[in-house]
């Protein structure tokens, strides 16, 4: 890691370790905090979120529900109860503000696993491996809806790694640990950022919300870009950077791609302070 070409070395030298890892640490903190808030009930009897990421109640009053699961239920011809619908609307509204796939980067427990695999890849300089099309996640959404409609049962939830891992943590794993382990091995040995970046239909669904979401990463300081490519190296969805950073004819400086997870790693890693969080509106802040 002392290699000066290693992504982040430049930023760490220029801005210091803390400010080149700020959003990363905040994000890990947020992921662990969400786990802790779900686990405090079963472990010590302090109920903050009761349920799982599929649906829960916050402080035993406010219902929350994953809109993607409600859509799957709708595809079978079932209209969920009003409590679940209200919960789904609250979650959809929350991510319309905070940035669709912010769910992936700040809440989803699978991200910790796939980020670890990506970090190992970077650390040991592994080949990219199997190249998948990033649009596969939308094909997966289609596949989920089709199989759900044909079987009349929420079949995706039998294997969904997101709910599987979270349910395992909150209610006990059984053999459910095999799926997150499979995802980890797939991401590490088969395809770089294979699951979250190419296949996961849950992330695909939140990326559709992200196309309209308010909070976005902006490249307001793009004229300072030194073309070091560190942001591309650490970004889980590097295709969203170019239009904002290098876009011409009025493109940019906002990252508008729905697949940006608002993880903020590019903000950390940039020695020239090109990126920052802001709104999706074009107004220049500086």
């Amino acid at each position: 890691m002392n290699d000066e070409n290693y992504p982040g070395a430049l930023a760490a030298a220029k801005k210091g370790w803390f400010s080149s890892h700020r959003w990363l640490m905040l994000r890990r903190l947020s992921q662990l905090a969400f786990l802790a808030l779900f686990l405090s009930g079963p472990l010590v009897g302090l109920w903050i979120f009761k349920g799982t990421l599929a649906a829960s109640r916050f402080l035993d009053t406010i219902p929350l529900a994953d809109p993607f699961i409600l859509l799957q239920s709708l595809v079978t011809g079932t209209i969920a109860g009003s409590t679940a619908l209200l919960g789904g609307a609250l979650i959809a509204g929350f991510y319309l503000v905070s940035g669709g796939r912010a769910y992936c980067a700040w809440v989803c427990p699978v991200n910790i696993i796939t980020d670890f695999a990506a970090w190992l890849r970077l650390r040991f300089n592994l080949q990219e491996g199997l190249s998948l099309n990033r649009n596969n996640r939308y094909w997966m959404i289609g596949m989920v809806f089709l199989t759900t409609a044909l079987t009349g049962s929420l079949v995706w939830e039998l294997i969904n790694p997101v709910t599987m891992l979270h349910r395992g943590l909150v209610f006990g794993f059984g053999l459910a640990w095999t799926i997150p382990l499979g995802i980890f091995c797939f991401d590490l040995f088969v395809s770089k950022r294979g699951w979250c970046g190419h296949l996961c239909p849950v992330g695909g669904f939140y990326s559709l919300l992200g196309r309209f979401s308010l909070i976005r990463v902006r490249a307001d300081g793009r004229e300072n870009c030194s073309n070091c490519l560190d942001c591309y190296a650490v970004c889980p969805e590097p295709q969203v950077i170019s239009p904002a950073l290098k876009g011409e004819n009025g493109q940019g400086p906002v990252i508008t791609g729905g697949n940006c997870t608002n993880c903020g790693r590019c903000i950390d890693i940039c020695a020239e302070r090109v990126f920052s969080f802001g709104s999706r509106f074009k107004t220049e802040y500086r």
Binding site: K50, G51, T52, A54, A65, I69, S153, L154, R167
Partner: peptide, 16 residues
């Protein structure tokens, strides 16, 4: 039967 499998979102709140 199947109506339950279509409606249940597997959140575990009944268990709690």
């Amino acid at each position: 039967g199947k109506k339950f499998l279509a409606a249940c979102i597997r959140c575990g709140q009944c268990v709690r």
